[in-house]
Design a protein around this nucleic acid. Structure first.
Lengths: 387, 387
DNA sequence: TTGAGTTACTTCTACGCTGCAAGTAACTCC
DNA sequence: GGAGTTACTTGCAGCGTAGAAGTAACTCAA
């Protein structure tokens, strides 16, 4: 009966593990679940019984699998039973989504921040949350931003907001909204969403590269996000991708930011031919065959391909997901991307799968919601969130 | 009483987990072990009791930790209770070590292979093992080679030996020596040794780069070796480190192999000044200030630094271990290495710790022994070896 | 010297979680 | 309509765990 107040945190560990497996990989029959978890069939029956009784999980579909023997009964988590809000912060705006347990977006709103001070940001976030959620009770709130958050609560670095010292954003938003709130780096949150519910659902290893105003990078290995003090803050942005490329603000020639950031691409096209004012125009011009735009965009695509190759060579991921608001670059310059990838990847090695996942601001906000979902489903979990 | 015949495989899972923790991180007091494993003190007492009774673990030292309260009693695994042999194969020779449970080398031998056919290699390995082990009973044998082994048994690729189809080297050596045998890629095996007992002991994440005839690469993330079909077979060897560098055999300019392989460095010095015939001479000349050797070695050091930076940026490891028979390069060109590292690493990010670990052929063989040790201590283990 | 405080370890119990074995259920194929 | 096959359930024995209560061995201060 979907009692939100009891919720997943009250489940016993093994039962919760089964529920998470169903959430991430479902629908699954009991036998498939047993194989996935490495358990006996009897144990799975026992674990699943209280989930069915509580209405968190339901049998779904007829389960026709065509084979011989008794047909299986696929089970699935009832995603609609819980609501989460996700908020992505930029220097000036907030973007919020309302999502269910599988991070399906049910509503979205956005608006300017009232200001950059912690109090103004908290008030803006609370406002966005109440606007997007209405009076639906929330199981959790996630907030993501370009910066770092310790323990998913304390913001320790937020260059775009200009915060000097640590701010307990998680605690403040929890107090303001009444819903348990977690804070995360925006790229890491997007990587979490990609991992659990997105283009890399079910993948044990993958990398995420976001292209847009900046270049972001996230890595999942052994089914777990790789976190560190430096994760998501641009270690990848200044990797050299083209020794003859343009300069970035730090004086690096041909680094990822200089080659791929949407502002840099726009500037390069503007310098070459004039008459452009937006990144989207540059991609359109390149599609239409404008020689300057084609050259700039192709150079960028080749650089992106080389970046993908470097990532795959050094992390051994079979898949690299491209996202971010500027990711159309990868479609427009797909040939150049493939060429750059081929140039730096051993042809004898397994080919790298490149997935292009469209990314707008609501995708970033959805990432924030997934951080909240993970925190809700695996509190202080042994594997997922922390450690 | 160190009964080798019962051994670790007969331990119950939780007890074995405690024993592995002591082996890898010991000596540890019971309370420290409880903290590490996330268990209560009572559970640890229960787990440790049979290990003490069986003599696999002993109390060690007085346990003075200076603080207040009852002093702790550090426990440690009795490493001398088991013997393992490790054999590293090259195209023409085998190198074998005898090691205890902590991979301390007790003896070493080497010799030419009788030939490259599977039968000749197996006979050579068995010969080396019996020479190095004498009549000591072996708990396990590890064999490592440049190539791939499926399931730690079946060699599926061995370019240096010219084997075409898969060869059940593990099964053949098991039959020939009477000791359970595992097969592994040589770089991965060295990474295992570095992880459990070497320069990265206790590290949750690190990367290993080997420099020598070829360039090797291994990665540990989340306390587990990253394995893949392509691991260890040279994905890293053809990364571009210097756009103006020399060519490798595949036509890559300035790739890791072209810049760092000992043969390439020797050739570059020989072309420049003549009068050298070995890699070691080149390093000596560079130390002595010979301008050609200094330039070649410094370029290589800078390239190695850039490689370390790329690895750290993309994998987020805090530590990179350098090893291999040509690793002296890193000491001779340490300034250039630091410069290359600084150039490609964000100064705001955590600094990368570079550990130089001397590596001869016996280190490679020790790696093979560690593969056997891991297989012995964590058979079909949930985390260590497979999956 | 004595007792309070502190940390390390042990013992006992209740219970969660597991595999295993022996069922039952629902299907296909012949 | 039975044999074969796969999915699932039920009951049981035993491992593994936390928690509470107790013991041990030390430091420190009065």
């Amino acid at each position: 009966m979907l009692n939100g107040s009891t919720g997943w945190p009250s489940l016993t560990p093994a039962t919760r593990t089964a529920a998470v497996e169903l959430l991430r990989h479902g629908p699954l029959s009991r036998s498939a679940l047993a194989r996935r978890l490495g358990l006996s069939a009897g144990s799975v029956t026992r674990l699943v019984t209280p989930l069915l009784a509580g209405g968190l999980v339901v049998p779904v579909g007829p389960g026709r699998d065509g084979g011989i023997g008794r047909p299986s009964t696929p089970l699935d988590v009832v995603a609609a039973g819980h609501r989460f809000a996700g908020v992505k912060l930029t220097a000036s705006h907030g973007y919020a989504v309302l999502a269910d347990l599988r991070s399906t977006v049910l509503a979205k709103v956005d608006g300017p921040l009232r200001g950059k001070s912690p109090a103004e940001v908290v008030a803006s976030v609370a406002d966005l949350v109440s606007r997007v959620a209405g009076d639906a009770p929330l199981a959790g709130v996630g907030v993501s931003l370009g910066g770092r958050a310790a323990d998913h609560r304390i913001v320790t670095a937020a260059p775009y907001l200009g915060w000097a010292g640590p701010v307990d954003l998680g605690g403040l938003v929890t107090a303001a909204t009444g819903a348990p709130t977690v804070v995360d780096n925006d790229v890491l949150a997007l990587a979490r969403a990609t991992h659990w519910f997105g283009a890399a659902r079910g993948a044990d290893r993958f990398a995420l590269v976001t292209v847009g105003v900046g270049i972001g990078y996230g890595l999942v290995v052994h089914d777990r996000l790789v976190d560190s003090d430096d994760a998501g803050v641009g270690l990848v942005a200044h990797l050299c991708l083209d020794p003859l490329g343009p300069l970035c603000a730090r004086g690096h020639r041909g680094c990822a930011e200089a080659m791929l950031a949407s502002g840099k691409i726009r500037d390069a096209v503007a310098v070459g031919r004039g008459g452009v004012s937006t990144y989207a125009e540059c991609l359109d011009l390149a599609s239409a065959g404008d020689p300057v735009a084609v050259r700039v965009v192709d150079d960028a695509g080749r650089a992106l391909g080389r970046l993908v190759a470097m990532i795959a060579n050094l992390t051994m991921v079979p898949t690299v997901v491209l996202s971010g608001d500027g990711v159309e670059l990868a479609s427009v310059a797909s040939d150049a991307l493939a060429a750059g990838l081929a140039a730096d990847r051993d042809p004898a090695a397994d080919p790298v799968r490149v997935e292009i996942h469209p990314g707008g601001f609501d995708e970033w906000a959805r990432g924030a919601a997934v951080t909240a979902i993970q925190s809700y489903t695996t509190p202080r979990g042994s594997a997922m969130m922390h450690r």
